[in-house]
Amino acid sequence: MDALKSAGRALIRSPSLAKQSWGGGGRHRKLPENWTDTRETLLEGMLFSLKYLGMTLVEQPKGEELSAAAIKRIVATAKASGKKLQKVTLKVSPRGIILTDNLTNQLIENVSIYRISYCTADKMHDKVFAYIAQSQHNQSLECHAFLCTKRKMAQAVTLTVAQAFKVAFEFWQVSKEEKEKRDKASQEGGDVLGARQDCTPPLKSLVATGNLLDLEETAKAPLSTVSANTTNMDEVPRPQALSGSSVVWELDDGLDEAFSRLAQSRTNPQVLDTGLTAQDMHYAQCLSPVDWDKPDSSGTEQDDLFSF
Rank of each mutant, 00 (worst) to 15 (best):
K87N: 08
Q285C: 03
R73H: 13
N105K: 12
P32L: 12
E59N: 03
V247H: 13
G8I: 12
S246I: 11
F48A: 12
L47F: 10
L287R: 01
I113L: 04
D280S: 07
L212W: 02
D304G: 08
S243F: 04
A7M: 11
V157E: 01
A208C: 09
S260L: 00
A70V: 15
S288F: 02
K152M: 11
L42E: 10
V157T: 00
L213Q: 11
N102A: 11
E44D: 12
L305Y: 03
E178F: 06
S140G: 14
A284K: 00
G275H: 07
L43T: 05
S112G: 08
T267S: 09
Q302M: 05
S117D: 05
K150S: 04
P15S: 03
G244K: 12
N229T: 06
M55S: 06
N211L: 05
R9D: 14
Q285G: 04
D291P: 08
V174I: 00
Q270M: 06
M233L: 11
L17I: 11
L17Q: 13
D303T: 07
V157L: 02
A162W: 08
D191S: 08
E217Q: 06
S297E: 08
Q197C: 01
K19E: 10
L305G: 08
T100W: 13
P94A: 06
K220F: 02
S307R: 09
L255C: 10
V192S: 08
Q264M: 01
S288R: 09
P15Y: 04
D198G: 06
P201M: 02
T225V: 08
K5I: 13
Q60D: 12
R182V: 09
L47S: 13
I98T: 06
Q60G: 05
D296A: 09
P269Y: 01
L47I: 07
L43V: 09
L103V: 12
F259H: 04
S49L: 12
C119Y: 00
G189A: 01
H144C: 11
S16F: 00
S175I: 00
D101G: 14
L272W: 02
H137D: 09
P239H: 01
L262Y: 08
Y283P: 09
N229C: 05
D303L: 07
L262Q: 06
Q173R: 09
G8P: 08
A80L: 13
N268K: 07
T89V: 11
G23Y: 04
T89N: 14
Q139A: 14
S112N: 12
M153D: 07
E65H: 11
K220D: 00
I132D: 07
N34S: 13
A3H: 07
A263G: 05
R261I: 05
K176A: 04
W35N: 01
P289I: 03
T209M: 08
S260T: 02
Q264L: 00
L53W: 14
K30P: 13
F169M: 01
S140K: 15
I116A: 12
A121Q: 10
L85F: 11
A241P: 03
D214E: 10
Q270S: 04
L17E: 14
R266M: 00
Q240P: 14
L305R: 14
Q197E: 05
